[in-house]
Design a protein around this nucleic acid. Structure first.
Lengths: 373, 373
DNA sequence: ATGACTTACTTCGAAATCGAACGTACTGCG
DNA sequence: CGCAGTACGTTCGATTTCGAAGTAAGTCAT
């Protein structure tokens, strides 16, 4: 993400994203003249969106006067929905998590009940709420903000989630696929500068978020959906989508859990960690299947890094098998500069991603402009 | 590609790209005030980069005064290199092809000889040359402008093509993979607005160019390289890359030509067109293999359109098999709004793409600024 | 310490840009 | 035909942005 326009919102964003700490940084990154930056910053401080806080480290000359977001600049509320639980958080504009709770909740209880639950249980905040974001384990149409034909979310199909969220809260609202949020979170907080990024989310299902050219690649809402790619396995398993031998039917947390006779994907981790041979072997097989699919995608997309997250990313044999398959089968050209690593932002990756997308939305421009004037 | 900055170059670009025909268009698209646009346009006319030419159609009010690029604004020279031939063209900034020649030339004669050949045989032009672009059938590092470990281009590896081109011609220079150029050409001239586009180039080899979010996706130079994705075929064939069963070894024009005992991929077209059973059957098999690979990519990338170009795109059974496989195996969500079509820009797609990239390069900003001042 | 150099930020006149009003030229309707 | 409505383009004073010079406050080598 390079130089946007030089409105007041752009400066706030640069500070919030941690890219700029001083007026000089802002001038460099925004393309505005130093004098213009000074003027604007003064306005923003007056509007209580920014504060001056101490001094930064010298880079060989006068020390910069460090700029930070003022607490009064506000917060975002974020809900990361899984199949059986909800993670609710309040983050400030810079992406600091101020409060989190994780509560059990069945997403199958439907959109209305779920949104009620989210709004009801959101942690309170002293500061003004500037927006609300929701991550969902299914495809979200970026234009309408609706969920489209999700496999694990009965009752959600074509429900206007974004509109309902805005109607109920009156806040700028964001609805996005969970793997996409995770990709944005990892990108902004752990892999800045790696503008082409693939983030695998291995949990109950198999998701993938894609950053292309520094921006979230949404496609028409289904981008990153690799669950139903055909794979070639020994035994045939029919997938819920109607086709045989989808990746998800063989290698998802749900599939592994079934094969191992446990209920939750997290149980798999324990089995693998304690060295149960069958679990390790299954993890390796899953890793090979996932790796085979991702190999083609890595050749095609040629990312700077492949990040593996989700609860199953804690299963070492699975991750190392994926890594091995990729290095073995991909073009040397594609792996030459490729980093393959597990998530660095952890459980909060999606929440951080939602915060960042909310900050970047045109929505945010509006209220920043409004506050400054 | 939305509103860039409002420099003089931006306005020229909008006119050249055919997006703007009047001052009013420019004001809308650039975000500048109408008054500022008028001022700038006057300068550009004075600098002989734009001309006023007649009037446009009324949209319910006063007719716009149509703006066009002045011929004196200049031209680009473009070379599209294949394995055995070179296509040389002169295009104006708006992408009109003013002259083309196609000459036999072996790319295996090496970079020095090839660049000499290109420069020597470029069609002459009355107008000032503003840049030169070269398309190559191999991966190009977007940072250095070097070819990196190409399979069909002996002697080219790590040769600094872009630097050499600039050194020899003194012109702003562009070097890019041929499939990437083709993707840009198709996107700008035949599929505007479809900002997520995959363009397959089926010729001697198998290439793929990707437009993500309206911009060419280069990755680290290898993006779109699907030749060496592993496929599952009946018989095993070893690929030159050292792995067995690469897509290219089974389904490329070169592979088909070998199997059919002909020399050039174009000969395959004749055999298929005249209904030779073996040729048709092979085309279908190739289509299925390519389709299987592309299916995964379509799910992952979720493009608005898949465009099939290159000489083999004339083989109807091949194309229709690819189409059938995709519609059969992809997620409904991914195919719901997907267009699958053959190239609309034809043989000149790459040349048009090079023209457009040259126009968009920062290089162009510089000389436009220079001419205006 | 001293002086040369680097970086951060501000000041202030010059230049670019804006925006509201105006002039122009067309469409479409009664 | 005449008039309302709409769109294109320009004029001109108000505003924003720039940029060169100046001030402030550091580092580093001597």
């Amino acid at each position: 993400m390079h130089s946007r326009e030089g409105g007041p919102a752009a400066l706030v964003r640069l500070v919030a994203a941690g890219q700029a700490e001083s007026r000089a940084d802002l001038a460099r990154l925004s393309g505005l003249a130093p004098s213009s930056v000074s003027l604007r910053v003064e306005q923003l401080i007056e509007a209580r969106l920014l504060t001056e806080e101490g001094e930064g480290a010298s880079r060989g000359g006068r020390r910069p006067r460090r700029l930070r977001l003022a607490p009064a600049a506000g917060v975002f509320q974020v809900a990361d929905l899984g199949a059986h639980h909800v993670r609710l958080a309040v983050v400030d504009l810079a992406g600091t998590v101020l409060a989190v709770t994780e509560l059990p909740h069945e997403i199958s209880s439907g959109p209305e009940a779920t949104l009620d639950f989210v709004i009801e249980n959101m942690p309170p905040s002293d500061q003004p709420v500037r927006g609300i974001g929701v991550g969902l384990p299914g495809p979200v149409d970026p234009v309408t903000g609706q969920v489209v034909s999700p496999s694990r979310m009965p009752g959600w199909s074509d429900f206007p989630v974004r509109d309902q969220l805005r109607a109920r809260t009156g806040l700028p609202s964001l609805v996005e696929n969970d793997a996409n949020l995770m990709a944005v979170g990892e990108y902004r907080h752990s892999w800045p500068g790696l503008d082409n990024l693939m983030v695998l989310k291995l949990g109950t299902g198999i998701g993938c978020g894609v950053i292309a050219g520094g921006r979230l690649h949404q496609g028409r809402g289904a981008a990153g959906d690799i669950s139903h790619v055909r794979i070639f396995a020994e035994a045939t398993v029919d997938c819920s989508c109607g086709h045989p031998d989808c990746l998800e039917a063989h290698a998802s947390g749900a599939a592994l859990a079934t094969a191992l006779g446990v209920e939750h994907p997290t149980d798999i981790l324990n089995l693998v960690a304690s060295g149960v041979p069958q679990a390790t072997s299954l993890a390796r097989t899953a890793g090979r299947l996932i790796g085979d699919v991702v190999t083609a995608l890595v050749n095609f997309f040629n990312p700077d890094a492949l990040v593996i997250g989700g609860s199953l990313s804690g299963a070492e044999p699975l991750v190392s098998t994926i890594r091995a398959v990729i290095y073995e089968r991909c073009l040397p050209l594609a792996t030459r500069n490729l980093q393959i690593a597990t998530s660095r932002s952890g459980r909060d990756a999606s929440i951080l991603g939602a915060g960042h997308l909310l900050l970047g939305a045109p929505l945010s421009d509006e209220w920043i402009d409004a506050v400054v004037r």
